[in-house]
């Protein structure tokens, strides 16, 4: 095997087909970058889902005096007996893992900790804050059933399921991920066709050489390797560009939203995704080249 001969053939092939090669590189780069971004969103969402699943709880707010909520019809607020009874009911439910009672003072303190709106905080008093049971569930997916059962219990004003607040956010991330992945799929498909076409053009351009190679008894590897390598090199360059795009998007997008998100996307994950997409890009190039060669370069 003479490496320099093969590589000079590859170089000639790439240069002769420059426009097609550039097209392949760009498609592979965009396709792989979108695939990578889709995977990055996916891993971000799943790490956040598991983070939040541990923390998601139901807030069962209790009636106060003159509470505006519909169930608190008698306007007197919850009595101590009702409170105890309710706690027992909640604790008796099989889905419930833990219950914490939050009184008005704690609620006020938590509110002040989380609120930056000082004007709002200045006229809100401790008595304005409702008392609540913070219910932690063994399986967060059971929240709907628990909510239904607790609604209408005496003294319950309303139930806030934190899960529902997060679901709209997760739903958005999910859509974004599927959009990126489906565009990536289309790009990968286009890249496959383009590589096939490039290899076919290349094979046609060099039909004289390959004809002679066949005639003098060059082995299939010698004849086909330059074409396959052309595809692989174009795929690799595209993969490197995709890696640059992914690193940029990690720094510019994912790191900037890190402030709002507890679980940041780690460099380890990004590195894994980059090597994964590169491998996919190169494998696609090899496959597309081989399939095309089988059709257009009979040996």
């Amino acid at each position: 095997m003479r490496a320099n001969f093969i590589f000079s053939e590859v170089w000639i092939g790439l240069r002769r087909n420059l426009t097609m090669t550039i097209a392949v590189i760009v498609t592979v780069a965009v396709g792989m970058a979108l695939l990578g971004i889709g995977l990055m969103i996916n891993s971000q969402v799943s790490s956040m889902t598991s983070y939040w699943s541990d923390k998601v709880e139901l807030s069962v707010y209790l009636c106060k005096e003159n509470s505006p909520f519909e169930p608190c019809t008698d306007k007197k607020g919850i009595s101590e007996e009702q409170k105890t009874a309710l706690e027992a009911v909640i604790k008796g439910m099989p889905q419930v893992e833990d219950v914490i009672f939050e009184d008005s003072a704690t609620a006020y303190k938590n509110f002040l900790d989380n609120q930056s709106n000082n004007v709002f905080a200045s006229f809100l008093k401790v008595e304005d804050m409702p008392e609540s049971f913070r219910v932690k569930l063994g399986d967060p997916d059971q929240s709907a059933a628990v909510t239904e059962e607790l609604t209408g219990q005496a003294g319950v004003s309303n139930i806030v399921n934190q899960r529902q607040l997060l679901d709209s956010y997760f739903g958005f991330m999910d859509k974004l991920q599927w959009m990126a992945l489906s565009v990536a799929f289309a790009m990968v498909f286009a890249a496959t066709l383009l590589i096939g076409n490039t290899v076919r053009l290349s094979a046609f351009n060099r039909r004289r050489e390959t004809g002679i190679m066949r005639l003098v008894g060059a082995s299939n590897v010698y004849i086909q390797l330059p074409f396959v390598l052309e595809g692989v090199i174009a795929g690799l360059i595209g993969g490197v560009l995709a890696a640059v795009m992914l690193i940029t998007s990690k720094v510019l997008i994912f790191d900037s939203i890190q402030n709002f998100i507890p679980e940041a996307l780690g460099w380890n994950t990004v590195a894994g995704i980059i090597s994964g997409t590169m491998a996919i890009g190169v494998i696609i190039c090899i496959l597309a080249s081989f399939i095309t060669l089988r059709r257009y370069l009979r040996v």
């Binding site: 002679i212 003098v216 082995s219 010698y222 004849i223």
Partner: peptide, 8 residues
């Protein structure tokens, strides 16, 4: 030479 190069 091509005929010899391509058979290694």
């Amino acid at each position: 030479a091509f005929a010899l190069e391509v058979i290694g």
